[in-house]
Simulated assay, not measured.
Amino acid sequence: MNVDMDTDDWLACPTPLEMYQHQCSILVEELAETERMLSRARANIAGLVQMNDLLATGKAEAESALKEARAEFETLKSSCTEPGILSMKLVAEQRDHLLRENQRLLGELGKLTEPQL
């Protein structure tokens, strides 16, 4: 059976031009949707860039604070070396001695000022 019929003139069958026009309209809609998606992606990227800038600024501030804290720690560490500890011990011993001497003198003063029986 050899069927060589041209189906372009059948009822409700689109012509090649109509099919091309329909395909073009589908492509135009897809292109418009792609442009909307691209616009949203650009807005998201701009937001991410802004967030990155804020994070970089915060990181720089944190690193600066850490550097200052380390410098202060090193200063305190160097002041608490052996000579520093010895001088603190010496001051503590002098304080204890003065406290004992003060208590002794207060005791003597109390004995002198008590009424004599």
Score class of each variant (00 low, 15 high):
Arg70Gln: 10
Cys80Arg: 13
Glu61Tyr: 10
Ser78Val: 00
Glu82Leu: 10
Ala65Met: 14
Gly58Ile: 06
Ala69Cys: 08
Leu76His: 15
Arg70Glu: 11
Glu74Cys: 03
Ser78Trp: 04
Phe73Val: 14
Leu86Lys: 05
Thr81Arg: 01
Glu74Thr: 04
Arg70Asp: 05
Lys77His: 13
Thr75Phe: 08
Lys67Asp: 04
Ala65Gln: 15
Ser87Cys: 06
Thr81Gly: 03
Leu76Asn: 15
Leu86Pro: 00
Phe73Arg: 09
Cys80Lys: 07
Ala62Met: 12
Glu61Arg: 14
Lys59Glu: 11
Ser87Glu: 15
Glu63Tyr: 10
Lys67Gly: 02
Glu72Cys: 01
Phe73Ile: 13
Pro83Ala: 05
Gly84Lys: 01
Leu76Ile: 06
Gly84His: 03
Leu66Gly: 01
Ala60Phe: 10
Ala60Gln: 14
Ala65Cys: 08
Glu74Ile: 07
Thr75Gln: 14
Glu63Thr: 10
Gly58Pro: 01
Ser78Met: 03
Glu72Gln: 05
Pro83Cys: 02
Ser79Trp: 02
Thr57Tyr: 11
Glu82Lys: 02
Arg70Ile: 10
Glu82Asn: 04
Lys67Met: 01
Glu72Gly: 00
Ser78His: 02
Cys80Leu: 15
Gly84Phe: 01
Gly84Cys: 00
Leu76Arg: 14
Ala71Phe: 07
Thr57Trp: 03
Phe73Ser: 06
Glu63Arg: 02
Pro83Gln: 04
Ala65Trp: 11
Ser78Glu: 01
Glu68Ser: 09
Gly84Arg: 08
Glu61Asp: 15
Arg70Pro: 01
Leu66Tyr: 04
Gly84Ile: 01
Gly84Val: 00
Ser79Gly: 05
Arg70Cys: 02
